[in-house]
Write a protein that binds this DNA or RNA. Structure first.
Lengths: 230, 230
DNA sequence: TAGATTGTTAATCGATTAACAATC
DNA sequence: TAGATTGTTAATCGATTAACAATC
């Protein structure tokens, strides 16, 4: 039996890495679409993203039979299919929690809204910030979280609060039946299994970068400046 | 022969995931240190981060012999060891490229400086932004990149430019002998092997979150509101 | 000493790649 | 038809976990 994206979803669970790639495929397909490409092969798609053709086929085949042997994948048909699989063929009313530098910057980030993530409420617990308006939205105090979440049907939250309070805030967010949290605080959040968390940990990323740079430098003969001699 | 963090580094390459965890261990150790804990076992360390004890031991043992059987790891000694391995026992002169919302927000992000990543130069190609000052640094025009990088010994760059120009900017950055790029543009950057790239792709993260939320919701009996009946 | 915990090897698990019959 | 490319199975690779002798 082949797994298909039927009413109840596929039999086995797709890995997080595979879903990440699905999102990349979608972006690439959208780019191909604007360039009026009508079909694309797994090897073309893979090449543009630095992945093997086998990987692309495997990832896509997991969710259904999207390609045609000898032809490839129909760009125009695959785009809505992937949008549906990823769950971005709908809007996600989203709360931004924590209106510091990062929160304010992300609020203005275009990429979110264009993909169905609509920030519809702002929260902060600093009295200086409560009541102010950003991008047409008033900043609510924390205590209003349950009421506002209920009223606006908020399903996702973007957490831009300091590490020290992140878990506590997450607990409150979970209590409001928010289903997913995009966490920017450098903390491992503990949440019940019905709630999903994705963490973006900038320090970890930068430290990993430092390690890589260091190990590349260590593998190059010392003292020799790079570049073809100028 | 056991691998050790000798003059030329370990024999085999640590996976990116392992390095990510090293950074998490370090953070946790620092937290333990402020709480005056002097030793920690692999199981304690793992538990606080949602990892197995075996994983922790394996990750650390890869770089040296840091623990004592029957005792655990000395917090005070492991911290500087990890800082050295990760390459954050030094400062990394860093350029911020692209002074839009995200660039300005990240510039003020405390986490960077406290870990040795010193932003020492700002760049943008928008004439409106060039010449302005943020956090005491003047925004340079793009053409100044080679000169400023040379003068300030810049080794890392944080890229906060639009997707359309990201590759082109990365090429210029590479030409200035910058060794590592933290990329926020939703693009796969192609760079030579001497240069390292870490990408933070917010859309991918959020789309993966949407998928997870959706699949959790699909696995719950439809229409039944959650929570213990209130 | 006895209990605890490491470093390391072997076993398991999962993800990626190779290969190829099916098919457009 | 012949060439291209899929979906899928088998082979490979790498990472995680289990287990345990060594040792504090």
């Amino acid at each position: 039996m082949r797994q298909r994206a039927g009413a109840t979803g596929p039999d086995r669970k797709a890995s997080r890495a595979a879903i990440n790639r699905l999102s990349l495929y979608l972006r690439q397909l959208e780019s191909l679409h604007t360039r009026d490409e009508s079909t694309v092969s797994s090897s073309q798609l893979g090449q543009s993203l630095g992945l093997s053709d086998a990987q692309v086929r495997k990832d896509l085949a997991f969710f259904g039979q999207f390609g045609q042997p000898g032809v490839g994948y129909a760009v125009g048909a695959l785009i809505p299919a992937l949008r549906h699989i990823l769950g971005i063929d709908r809007t996600w009313p989203t709360a931004m929690i924590g209106m510091g530098n990062l929160g304010r910057a992300l609020l203005r980030y275009r990429g979110f809204r264009s993909r169905g993530f609509h920030i519809v409420a702002l929260f902060d617990n600093d009295d200086q910030k409560v009541g102010r308006t950003h991008s047409g939205l008033k900043v609510h105090r924390f205590e209003d979280l349950p009421r506002v979440c209920e009223r606006k049907g908020i399903t996702l939250a973007i957490l831009c609060v300091p590490a020290e309070v992140a878990q506590q805030v997450a607990d409150q967010v979970v209590a409001c039946r928010v289903r997913g949290i995009l966490n920017f605080a450098p903390v491992k959040l503990v949440v019940p299994p019905q709630t999903s968390v994705m963490s973006v940990d900038l320090s970890v990323q930068l430290e990993t970068l430092a390690y890589q740079v260091q190990s590349v430098m260590a593998s190059i003969p010392a003292g020799r400046p790079q570049g073809a001699g100028n």
